[in-house]
């Protein structure tokens, strides 16, 4: 996921006002910075809406997304079906609302998985060095050599879905595939971040005072090395949602009857020539979600980066 590390945007944030006395931590400094950034608030509101949509879709619509009215198939947007109906006669508005769940679940769980696995291995490699570092780095090289999409396709072909696979199993399979292929970039990032923090005086002081390695990692290394990983993981969340849609487009990510934006988009492409509105709405929601996470990551990066102040 080098993409994420390179979405280097300079949303120039303004010079922080002089502190009103008292020491401030890096995190509270970053928070003051964030609060003033309108882009941060836009993305937070967007994400809140989509998460709510994923959690309780009933709040947004009372239409059943699995009710197919074939005689109204491909109907254009109207008062009855706000976004129109797709080729199966499903209500596109309801499908789009219910589709949020799959994307958010895949994005959130994959990000959690890659962050936990990636940073754990990165800390081990960066902190202990020696043969553990060599081993982890070589394994990272191997996984980095397999492109994300390629590996995802192979994984999903190896463990295909049946029509009666439970929803959560289908989602978790995609999560697992993306986690297995996504962790190495975070491991690399965490490793270099830890190696930067490790030689600092406060780490040496803690060691001299007899702190255990576990304590040094938990209370000194981790809080100071976590920022770049959080930024990249946030941006990656958007990227994973996009990759899930791509896998679904290829017919091997989430598969019907699961409702997801990727599945909807894939179905809509068949009808693109005659009824493009079927494609518009799920793509719009998908793009807005991806956009929201990328903007959030950008804003957090700027807040943590002293150079932009």
């Amino acid at each position: 996921m080098t993409e994420a590390t390179t979405i280097a945007v300079g949303q120039e944030t303004h010079v922080a006002e002089a502190s009103e006395g008292g020491a401030r931590s890096l995190a509270s400094d970053a928070w003051r910075q964030l609060k003033k950034n309108p882009i941060f608030w836009v993305s937070v509101v967007l994400i809140a809406i989509f998460v709510l949509m994923a959690a309780v879709p009933q709040l947004f619509t009372s239409t059943d997304p699995t009710e197919a009215v074939l005689k109204d198939a491909r109907m254009r947007p109207n008062a009855d079906a706000w976004f129109g109906r797709d080729i199966q006669g499903y209500d596109i508005y309801a499908r789009t609302i219910y589709g949020a769940r799959a994307s958010i679940l895949v994005g959130v769980f994959t990000t959690l998985g890659t962050v936990i696995l990636g940073s754990a291995l990165g800390i081990i490699a960066g902190f202990s060095g020696g043969w553990a570092d060599t081993l982890v780095s070589r394994i990272t090289d191997i996984f980095l050599a397999i492109p994300l999409l390629l590996g995802g396709i192979l994984f999903m072909a190896t463990f295909p879905n049946n029509a009666d696979s439970p929803y959560i199993v289908v989602v978790l399979k995609v999560v697992l595939a993306l986690t297995i292929l996504g962790w190495p970039s975070l491991t690399r990032l965490m490793r270099s971040s830890v190696m930067q923090v490790k030689p600092n005086d406060y780490v040496q002081a803690a060691r001299a005072l007899g702190a255990s390695p576990w304590r040094i990692i938990r209370s000194h290394i981790l809080p100071n090395a976590m920022a770049p990983v959080i930024v990249v993981a946030t941006i990656n969340l958007g990227v994973y949602i996009s990759v899930e849609a791509t896998l679904s487009f290829l017919g091997i990510g989430l598969t019907p009857p699961a409702i997801s934006w990727g599945v909807s988009i894939s179905d809509a492409l068949v009808a693109l020539r005659t009824t493009p509105h079927i494609l518009l709405f799920p793509s719009l929601f998908l793009s807005l979600t991806v956009l929201a996470f990328i903007m959030l990551g950008d804003a957090v990066r700027d807040a943590f980066d002293p150079k932009t102040r």
Binding site: I7, G238, S242, A245, T246, F249, I265, L269, L279, S283, L286, S287, L288, V290, L291, I294
Partner: peptide
């Protein structure tokens, strides 16, 4: 461009 999936 980044936020729209490539197949779309």
């Amino acid at each position: 461009v980044i936020s729209i999936p490539v197949f779309v």
